[in-house]
């Protein structure tokens, strides 16, 4: 079962330097924060959509389409009713909700674009280049690698307990929650048994060997990175100008 969003495809976006990818992600996020007016967010969304197509990430959007819709409508409804108040619908809230909904979907799309083109090793590498200690980056990689292992274990445990008559979809919240005890305990104990072996296997591969560590993955920035960097800077600049000119902001609605 494919859990991760990473799309193994040889597209120019995949080949970008990890730091460039992280930079693009940050640029889009910053840009989306600069304006509130819903219409002004559309060009940004269009840029991201084009990159999505380039990165062959559209299947992921389809996979998470429910999420896009839910985020959109939920945000709209919540702000309409909870804008500076509790459970009182306001027009200002509606407008604000609309722009936030678009913004959140933009973030969602940006995140998917990033995850579709970036392996966790690259994330760890980029963060390392930006000053994160190696151990943190490695822990992230290791955890990421273990997720499918524990996920499969959890599925097995759920089935095994069903065979003993454990019915999950019945009863109130408390009763339902309590049924997770027979699921979580075996998964956790199994993980602990594995923890020991894993720590040993790490040392056997030279972790803590006492020798200085070398780094193999040394991504090199190329012309594409310059192009992507320019795109990032241009996007941010455009939106900062819009913001500075006061064009994109919504006034406070009392």
């Amino acid at each position: 079962m494919a859990l991760t969003l990473y799309v193994a495809a040889p597209t120019p976006l995949h080949r970008l330097h990890p730091v460039t990818k992280l930079g693009l992600l940050a640029a889009f996020v910053v840009a989306a924060f600069m304006v509130d007016r819903p219409l002004l967010l559309v060009p940004l969304a269009a840029v991201i959509a084009v990159l999505m197509v380039l990165a062959r990430a559209l299947p992921n959007v389809r996979r998470l389409r429910v999420m896009f819709l839910l985020v959109f409508f939920f945000t709209l409804v919540v702000w309409t009713f909870f804008y500076q108040s509790v459970l009182v619908p306001t027009y200002g809230g509606f407008l604000y909700g609309l722009s936030t909904a678009i913004r959140l979907d933009t973030f969602l799309a940006t995140g998917i674009l990033f995850l579709s083109t970036t392996r966790v090793e690259e994330v760890a590498y980029a963060l390392g280049r930006l000053g994160l200690p190696y151990t943190m980056g490695f822990t992230l990689t290791l955890a990421f690698r273990l997720v499918p292992v524990f996920f499969d274990a959890a599925l097995s445990v759920v089935q095994a307990q069903r065979c003993r008559g454990l019915e999950f979809g019945r009863g109130g919240v408390v009763a339902r929650l309590r049924r997770f005890v027979p699921v979580i305990v075996p998964v956790l104990i199994g993980a602990l048994r594995r923890a020991d072996r894993m720590a040993m296997a790490l040392e056997l591969r030279g972790f803590n060997s006492g020798r200085p560590r070398t780094t193999y993955l040394r991504a090199r920035a190329g012309a594409a990175d310059v192009l992507a960097g320019t795109l990032a800077v241009a996007t941010v600049a455009t939106y900062v100008v819009l913001w500075a000119a006061g064009i994109g902001t919504l006034a406070a609605h009392p």
């Binding site: 392996r119 090793e121 292992v149 040993m200 790490l202 030279g206 803590n208 560590r213 993955l217």
Partner: peptide, 30 residues
């Protein structure tokens, strides 16, 4: 040393990186 539990002996999400791991940690020149 190799154990029975192969899942506990793999630390990467990429076959190449898996081999590279030990080499980096024992200081093999890139």
């Amino acid at each position: 040393m190799v154990f029975q539990d192969f899942e506990a002996q793999l630390f990467s999400t990429d076959v190449t990186q898996e081999i590279v791991f030990g080499l980096e940690h024992t200081g093999v020149a890139p």
